[in-house]
Design a protein around this nucleic acid. Structure first.
Lengths: 334, 334
DNA sequence: CTGAAAGCGCTTACAG
DNA sequence: CTGAAAGCGCTTACAG
């Protein structure tokens, strides 16, 4: 049916191996031979069969990306950048949405999804380091995010604590003293919620402001939950003069609820988020937030994963990368 | 290295073909034989090699999705739903971002991307129907969106004209007479911008309100362009009492600019969008928009594409599906 | 520098 | 109901 390497070899009057050599940029081919092969390829309109190549070579030139939900703005923007970075190196990205379900996360590690990809960019939300280590095959895996901080794994993440502390310090410097936090449990101290809450607590401590658990509203990181959490605080009569949404969609949900209730932002209550999604700049009022270095995260995680896939070193220890962050001061918390 | 079908056959004391029959749910297998094979599979931890299966069968059980930019909220939400719908039928979705570049769109039709997938969900933005027809191989392709309306192709789309007309009629009914449109050229009449503009014009006509080209601001569909377009109208001194952003991010960009300039929304200027992305509900004020039936679009386009892939009929004519829409009246244009 | 052969792990006619 | 054989289209040692 389709044109094969055999057809090309016949047309060029060489063996299969020579065609393969040309395709794989083998150095030592006589220019004349190479030219004949290339002419035959163009003439016949030959295209390499990627499946056959994969079967024989054991490589697919696809990377797996496991995240909870591609429709969340942060993940959508990250996935888009990861795909572009991978594409520049000749790789495609296959996305798996886990919905934060343990079974899906586990299956991504060893099932067909793993088989289809040469390496994994993994954002686990529910399974733990040991579960991952137990299912870790030979193929490389780079952790994205901060659910797992384990020296065994490569990890690309952001400065959660530092950035959250800087943001909180900014709110404190503006005179805010009762800063509500949306998206963590008061006692949480690991994972993205916990680390960001740690930063918040450190900044409070530094300023000599007491930590009040009543100000901490736990919820899943979705827009509607941000709104509901703030509604809950207001209904309970908890007094606060700022809201720190642990990500932007939470902050934007909170902002919406405050404005609906007639609370003036930032005059009465300042609002700040975390992520700097495209939307933050265009919210009304625009959202003060932290830019966590998403482009750097995308670049470095692709670079690290491809080094593992293509590089010689299998490495004993995991590499830990932390992207730099930037405070983005806007109208919602000047 | 890995466990193969041969290993399973040996362990179960049957031939390769019998193992294949069990794996592929062939009907006529003696229960005892089937059981022995299944036991061997579990015992050895056998997993089918998908690459080998693909090479032999010519099927990858992957669908291609070509869109301009996964980080755009509408596409991110659509991609997420498409993946879920495909997953229920045992397929994966591989995304290709075209950035609205013609070359990328063309390559998606015949290059390696096509080879890796059994069928394509294609949102072309720049190439035309003939270019597509010329490169259309044997594999099925379903158009998404409305850049191409051609009887040769299967198409799943939304009621652009009707929905835009309904939205415009809503603005007119609320007494708005100078409705600016952001995201189309005044003379445009095809593609998403053109069709939505047609709907706008029809509603104006129906209401006996003259069409004023000065109110039509062309720009690419990005948030910052929506803001810039409104800034342009205000700076030129064009009078208007409503803005219809041809998609939600344009409307939200416009809303932002209006509020920055101290224009009261909706009192002085009403704002409406199109798409009903998650963000619309939580904007401040919340955004009046059109919900174009995204879930229906996702479901039906997957169903249609898989019918083509798995079904017997190669069909002469393309099937055209239009999802239903709903007007979402919120605070920005009550 | 180039060739002839083996084999990656499946599915698919072809037999019986 | 089940088996023996061929072959999908490549890459990879092995020779020379």
């Amino acid at each position: 049916m389709a044109v094969t390497m055999n057809d090309v070899a016949r047309a060029a009057g060489v063996s299969l191996k020579t065609v393969s050599n040309v395709l794989n940029d083998y150095e030592f081919i006589r220019p004349a031979t190479k030219q004949r092969v290339q002419d035959a390829i163009v003439e016949l309109g030959y295209e390499a069969n990627l499946t056959a190549r994969s079967l024989r070579s054991g490589k697919t030139r696809m990377l797996g990306l496991v995240l909870s939900d591609l429709s969340a703005p942060y993940y959508a923007e990250l996935a888009s950048r990861l795909m572009k970075a991978a594409s520049l190196r000749g790789y495609r990205v296959l996305v798996e949405q886990s919905d934060a379900v343990a079974e899906v996360e586990l299956n991504a590690l060893q099932g067909p999804f793993r088989q289809l990809t040469d390496g994994l960019l993994f954002t686990p939300l529910v399974i733990d380091a040991d579960a991952i280590a137990a299912r870790l095959g030979k193929k490389p895996l780079v952790m994205l995010g901060e659910h797992i901080l384990d020296p065994r794994f490569d990890l690309v993440t952001m400065k959660n604590e530092e950035a959250a502390a800087a943001l909180t310090a900014h709110l404190l410097a503006a005179g805010r003293r009762r800063i509500a936090v949306v998206g963590a449990r008061p006692e949480e101290s690991t994972g993205s919620p916990g680390l960001r809450l740690n930063g918040y607590r450190k900044a409070l401590e530094q300023a000599g402001v007491p930590f009040d658990p009543a100000l901490i509203a736990p919820c899943e990181w979705r827009r509607d939950n941000g709104a509901a959490a703030v509604a809950g605080l207001l209904d309970k009569g908890v007094a606060f003069d700022a809201v720190f949404g642990l990500n932007d969609v939470l902050a934007l949900g909170a902002l919406h609820e405050l404005l609906i209730r007639g609370v003036r932002v930032p005059d009465e209550v300042a609002v700040a988020g975390f992520d700097d999604i495209d939307e933050a700049r265009f919210a009304s009022p625009s959202l003060t937030t932290v830019s966590p270095g998403m482009e750097e995260i995308a670049q470095r995680s692709i670079a690290l994963l491809l080094d593992r896939i293509e590089g010689q070193e299998t490495a004993g220890q995991g590499v830990h990368v932390e992207a730099g962050f930037q405070l983005k001061v806007r109208e919602s918390a000047p």
